[in-house]
């Protein structure tokens, strides 16, 4: 089946699309009610987030836009210490999309939601003119346990910065397919429930969590250093990097510090808990390559800085990503 404008008409074709693909993939008691809105149980402090997903190509080594759309939103909830519970999803589908592709995307979405322990409780589909593209918006709801207070403003001098694994894998995967470079790099798109819950359940005093997405580690940490008004100093030699990603960056003149991930996070924890926290992350799924990459000290003149101590003992000052981070050759 090829998606046409009729599938967005609201009539029989729309029902067929929803029944055939989404209702089958996301099957659960709340969604199956097919009401105008989902009514779900839950109380306490609620975390809410939303994110829209556009990616070319739609399917890439290690995942597809469906998996991505769950990971991105689930991870955003987790980064506030929330337990993710419910997702909504809105599909904007261009006419010309093959329904088999749509099925694969919906299936990946359902599998990833199951992995992350969330239910997809509401959804919407629109069809627009175009050429076979898919865009997805997801919103997520989670519940924050009492006593948990994780925020971008809470990084303090004396903290250390942990990274849960190798930098840049997702970005390198996506860019590789666009630049005719073949490699075995796979996207790291993954829900990070296990490592976050391990930290919280084992009494680690987590000050801040942040998933490393667009803009890469440097952008994320520079933003955090600004929010918390601290100096973060990274050790260049401890930055975790897959050699294939390192050379991929070398080929295209890119800096791994600005390459995005979709299944990595940083955690700021007090120095005396660093070893315990690292051990917990490493034991959790997707956290095997976690390392300590830097330390936090007082900010200078009330503002934040991100520094890297380089291999030859130099200091490099980093800013957030400027522009698009396009490959440079020349």
């Amino acid at each position: 089946m090829i998606i046409t404008m009729a599938h967005g008409s609201g009539g029989a074709a729309t029902s067929e699309l929803i029944d055939e693909i989404f209702a089958k993939a996301f099957d659960n008691d709340v969604l199956n009610e097919m009401e105008d809105s989902a009514v779900v149980p839950g109380s306490g402090r609620i975390a809410v987030t939303t994110d829209s997903f556009v990616v070319t190509p739609l399917e890439y080594p290690g995942g597809n836009i469906g998996r991505l759309a769950v990971c991105g939103t689930v991870n955003d909830l987790l980064m506030r210490g929330a337990t993710p519970k419910y997702l909504t999803c809105g599909y904007i589908i261009q006419e010309g999309t093959d329904s088999e592709l749509l099925k694969r995307v919906a299936t990946a979405m359902a599998e990833t939601a199951a992995e992350a322990g969330v239910k997809i409780v509401a959804g919407d589909t629109k069809v627009i003119e175009g050429n076979g593209g898919i865009m997805i918006n997801t919103a997520g709801v989670g519940f924050v346990p009492d006593g948990v207070d994780i925020s971008a403003t809470k990084i303090a001098p004396g903290d250390v910065i942990l990274v849960s694994g190798n930098l840049g894998d997702h970005h390198a995967t996506i860019l590789g397919s666009r630049m005719n470079i073949t490699n075995s790099i796979e996207s790291d798109n993954a829900p990070l429930n296990e490592m976050v819950m391990a930290l919280l359940d084992n009494g680690i005093d987590v000050h801040c969590l942040r998933d490393v997405t667009r803009g890469g580690l440097a952008t994320v940490l520079k933003e955090l250093s600004d929010s918390s008004k601290v100096t973060i100093t990274l050790e260049e030699e401890s930055l975790p990097l897959n050699p294939a990603v390192r050379d991929f960056c070398g080929l295209l003149g890119l800096d791994p510090l600005y390459m995005g991930n979709e299944g990595k996070m940083i955690a700021a924890v007090p120095k005396d808990q660093a070893e315990a926290a690292l051990a917990l992350i490493r034991k959790a799924k997707y956290g095997e390559a976690a390392v300590l990459v830097g330390e936090v000290t007082e900010g200078v003149d009330g503002h934040g800085d991100l520094l890297v101590r380089t291999a030859i003992g130099g200091i490099r000052q980093l800013d957030v990503l400027q522009g698009e981070g396009l490959p440079r050759i020349c």
């Binding site: 005719n180 470079i181 073949t182 050699p243 294939a244 390192r246 991929f248 080929l251």
Partner: peptide, 8 residues
């Protein structure tokens, strides 16, 4: 080959 990246 560049550490697993193949370029023609």
């Amino acid at each position: 080959d560049f550490s697993g990246n193949t370029v023609r």
